[in-house]
Design a protein around this nucleic acid. Structure first.
Lengths: 342, 342
DNA sequence: ACAATCCATGGGAGCGCTCCCAAGGGCGTT
DNA sequence: AACGCCCTTGGGAGCGCTCCCATGGATTGT
């Protein structure tokens, strides 16, 4: 059976070398696009590769180079968010696009409980990827620290705090939020509340800071009763809106730190019979598809989500190629997209 | 530097064997949970593994076993759909959940253009995964045929046609559609149009068939003017609704083959001042989050998307373990979720 | 024309693991 | 007491590739 097995087996470098009448080294050089191969040899090898339909065995390559040619995208989020947030899809698309002209592959790892976390840790320790992209970081998330310790190339989307040491990409959350609030204030709204994101995340803090900054520019110190933090979910946004309205019936505008939360707020406003935007103006953040679907369509701060996916990928590939280099970071601009809620 | 390098390098099986005072074979047996190891040897090996923090090198293992311990989830869709369809996220969650107590990893591969397709083909030919999950199959998609030819374990979500030879999982599209239309007809609606899915996909056909079946049960042969196919996008749904209304102003109900298309239809109805559900009732399909967000909230046929993700994964793992066995297939039930559009 | 270079080339060594077989030790049987 | 069996064990061979070095031929300079 040995010869039959051998026939069924995929061709190896060796087989190509024999057929092309050259040595293994030469084939390897051709396959990897390395210099130092004569035109004649290259042609012969290429013909042999085509004839045998040769494809290199990645495991064998990986064993000696100790590269895996793949990166992991880690999404540490509860069920609900991945379901709701078009944000993640956009990032995935960006990553995939940037990877398209690479030989790198994308591993998707959802971390929703301890079991999945352990699995990820084992995985990274086995160095089954060359680098890690981590989306949605919480202030005290143990994961970034773990990755840092392991010294595996890592790029975060977002950051734990303003002085994040790891490479990361984030959008100009402070600026974007200020943009939104400035817009509201500039149109005569006087009592602008905010549904903040989780305050254990830098996005939460930064968007809240933007809200504060815009007020400060006008010399006003907004009251704490105008702030209600929520958890980026729709139900959370709705509850926050309810709380805000109960506390401050005089609210005439709301800046929500995400579209999904804004959608929840809109539901609450509708329920209470408050007209949007006449009585209460609303602005969201993310400019996701939900913003186009609310009634009325939601004015929102747009961040280039897909571009963020591309950016983190680029930075990660850089870092993989030069792990000793400095950490990379990038802030992407935000813009205001006006629709009907303002 | 050789000794320094050696020190920095991760521990190998050999190192564990030395420390435990046993042979490589014994360590390998312990690591892989194989029988034929004495309790004493097992204990010694486990201690050594813990002390060295040993993690097996997957590339070395893969080289000899020619398994990769990973599967690919292939999503061959245009930008727009991945963005819009919560469907994909749900499937991903299901897959990930099912994989959680496995050592298998998930590779996500988006195939949006020829370049990405070529890349996928190379990838599968290099056998960089043990199996493939393919979502969203079109009738003449070359991919299933390619996978079949390559003889790599494959499970489809959906099917090319009712006699799909490859393993697959799909929901009861015919039954679900019939459920919806029966509901409409049962409530006194007389002119039930349908916005069909792409007719080059089995889902498109099957849901259309369900619409026909429910009419047939009542002995009516619905007119072709009540059918408008679209492409599962919101804009497509809206255009189809427009067309339908222009053709048949007497329509008093619409069954859309997806929630996203139903959302488009609602927009068009609102624009025309037609009240939902009073003048026109609407039912969607998928019961995705968009169904909860339309105004009014959309009645929809629910399919267990996350369960589909789990199911395809189970079937794929089966098929990987027993590639010679018969092809697997599974039909999952659908239910009607009533909201405010009926 | 001869030496000094340079470039293309072949192939040995080795990456870390699994597979498998031969060997050793303990036990039961007659 | 001698033999046979079974279970545990160690380690050689080999998976397919890259890395690197020694070799030989062609090229250039004087």
């Amino acid at each position: 059976m040995s010869s039959a097995e051998r026939a069924a087996r995929r061709p190896t470098l060796e087989a190509v070398a024999r057929l092309a009448g050259v040595g293994r080294g030469t084939v390897s050089r051709v396959v990897n696009g390395l210099p130092g191969v004569s035109a004649k040899a290259r042609t012969a090898v290429e013909a042999a590769i085509a004839e045998l339909n040769y494809v290199p065995n990645p495991a064998a390559r990986s064993l000696v180079t100790s590269r895996t040619d793949s990166i992991a995208l880690v999404i540490p989020e509860s069920e609900s968010r991945l379901a709701t947030e078009p944000y993640f899809s956009a990032v995935i698309r960006g990553v995939s696009t940037e990877l398209a002209d690479t030989e790198m592959q994308l591993l998707l790892i959802l971390v929703r409980d301890q079991r999945e976390l352990d699995r990820l840790i084992r995985f990274v320790e086995a160095r089954r990827v060359d680098g890690v992209l981590l989306v949605s970081v919480h202030r005290d998330d143990p994961l970034p620290a773990f990755l840092e310790k392991t010294r595996i190339p890592t790029v975060l989307v977002g950051r734990r705090s303003p002085d994040e040491p790891l490479s990361h990409v984030h959008s100009d959350n402070v600026g974007g939020a200020a943009l939104a609030v400035r817009h509201l204030l500039g149109r005569g709204r006087t009592t602008v509340a905010t549904i903040a994101g989780p305050l254990d995340m830098d996005v939460g803090h930064s968007r809240l800071k933007g809200w504060r900054d815009a007020h400060a520019e006008r010399g006003v110190e907004p009251d704490g009763s105008l702030i209600a933090p929520a958890d980026f979910t729709e139900e959370g946004g709705r509850a926050a809106m309810r709380e805000l309205l109960d506390r401050r019936p005089d609210i005439d505008a709301v800046f929500a730190a995400s579209d999904v939360m804004a959608a929840g707020a809109l539901t609450e406003l509708r329920e209470r019979g408050l007209r949007v935007p006449e009585e209460v103006a609303v602005i969201g953040f993310d400019d996701s598809i939900v913003a186009r679907h609310t009634v009325p369509p939601l004015t929102s701060v747009s961040q280039p989500t897909e571009e963020m996916g591309r950016a983190i990928t680029r930075l990660l590939l850089d870092e993989i190629n030069d792990p000793a280099g400095p950490r990379r970071q990038l802030t992407l601009p935000t813009t205001l997209v006006e629709r009907r809620t303002t």
